[in-house]
């Protein structure tokens, strides 16, 4: 089996008496979509924040492409190729689609302290940006302000920005949230293609999407992973059915 891209080993985080992360170990392998599911309050967000570097775990270690990244902050992890989407769409609202993605390309390049050359006339920024915009399905919308995009288009813009990081792994936090039926269907297709770029750790409540996309699923309950396995294994797992899916799930 190939080396995991992302590996959490025995991660622990407590807030006072609340144990939010209770010895979580998890791997993300090349080419897979690994879904992380669990009821509200299971500690999914806390776990994501630890992977991103927003909060520090009390114990345990996170390895990214074989390198321990525990000491790195959010921007440093992003530059290593850890691309995220936010639970609530997060783009630069006053920027056009093109400016948003150009910003992402510039951020990924690590060379933002350039003071003279107009960024929007720099082919080194604009050409990859246009490519990623097209890839994310937003061709022709380059000049539109991000705040004028529909919800679904904003999701696509986030994906274009994530692609611009030349990601080694995606961390997608509820990308289906608030999407209509048609939007969710489109996005499912885009995410399925995305795994060719880099593996995806997908936090999602939409079980249709999870079952359609995931190669493996981990179920988080009260800060612990109670099961990891393929879609069929998770669906059949009695403990998962009791604690999350519900006894009468199909």
């Amino acid at each position: 089996m190939s080396e995991p891209i992302l590996e959490l080993r025995d991660l622990r985080k407590r807030f006072g008496a609340l144990v939010a992360t209770d010895g979580v170990s998890l791997t993300l392998r090349p080419g897979e979509i690994h879904a992380l599911i669990g009821p509200n309050g299971a500690g999914k967000s806390t776990l994501i924040k630890q992977i991103l570097g927003e909060i520090r775990p009390d114990a345990g270690t996170i390895r990214f492409e074989g390198q321990a990244i525990d000491g790195l902050d959010v921007p440093a992890r992003a530059r290593l190729g850890l691309a995220r989407s936010f639970q609530v769409s997060s783009v630069v609202p006053g920027f056009s689609v093109l400016q948003n993605v150009v910003l992402a390309v510039a951020g990924a390049s690590g060379r933002i302290y350039q003071f003279h050359r107009p960024a929007l006339r720099d082919p080194a920024l604009v050409e990859p940006a246009v490519f990623h915009i097209r890839h994310a399905g937003l061709a022709g919308r380059e000049g539109v302000l991000a705040s004028d995009l529909s919800h679904g288009e904003r999701r696509k813009l986030e994906i274009a920005m994530a692609l611009a990081l030349r990601p080694r792994a995606f961390l997608l936090d509820e990308p289906m949230a608030g999407m209509g039926l048609e939007g969710a269907r489109q996005l499912t297709a885009i995410l399925s293609d995305l795994r060719a770029e880099a593996p995806i750790l997908l936090v999602e409540h939409d079980m249709d999407a999870v079952f359609a996309l995931a190669d493996r699923i981990s179920v988080l309950v009260y800060g612990r992973i109670i099961a990891t396995g393929t879609v069929a294994e998770i669906r059949a797992d009695p403990e998962v059915r009791r604690s999350y899916l519900g006894e009468d799930a199909p």
């Binding site: 921007p75 995220r84 609202p93 910003l103 990924a108």
Partner: peptide, 10 residues
Amino acid sequence: NPARAQALGI
């Protein structure tokens, strides 16, 4: 959007 900027490595 400072959070977004950080997520882009800035």
